[in-house]
């Protein structure tokens, strides 16, 4: 940058010219200074950090995790759903009762009290 050093090997009039040039930039009018200030602010505004770009990585990561989680959760259901239509397709008799099926077993245990009551009713009727 400007050093304004006096050099022994350069003519004195050049140092004088430098002083004249320095004087010419010292006293600028207010309008010019204001425009220079606005120009500087406009230039610096380009450098301010942009929040959305900074959040892109974590947001993208979170979206990817959510997608992965959805796929994992959805997969077993899809597996069961794809297995279910098969017995229906084979015929009505097969669909009535399939003891090996997990769903039927669960249904049986849920209605255990009902079956016990039914059994008691049948025994009462017989006796």
């Amino acid at each position: 940058m400007n050093t304004n050093h006096h050099s022994n090997d350069r003519p004195a009039w050049i140092d004088q010219a430098n002083r004249v040039l320095d004087d010419s930039v010292r006293d600028l009018d207010a309008a010019t200074l204001s425009r220079l200030n606005r120009a500087r602010q406009a230039a610096l505004a380009q450098q301010r950090p942009r929040t959305p770009r900074a959040w892109l990585l974590p947001a993208g990561l979170a979206s990817a995790c959510a997608l992965l989680l959805a796929v994992i959760v959805w997969q077993p259901h899809r597996h069961i759903e794809t297995q279910q239509p098969a017995p229906i397709a084979t015929g009505a008799s097969a669909a009535v009762d399939d003891g090996d099926s997990e769903e039927s077993t669960a249904e049986f245990y849920q209605n255990l009290e009902f079956y016990a009551w039914l059994d008691a009713q049948n025994k009462g009727g017989d006796g």
Binding site: M1, N2, L21, S24, V25, R26, L28, T32, L36, A39, R40, A43, L44
Partner: peptide, 13 residues
């Protein structure tokens, strides 16, 4: 900002 303040007047000239 400091740098630009320092050079702007000479640049303008």
């Amino acid at each position: 900002d400091t740098f630009l303040r320092g050079v702007e007047r000479r640049a303008l000239r």
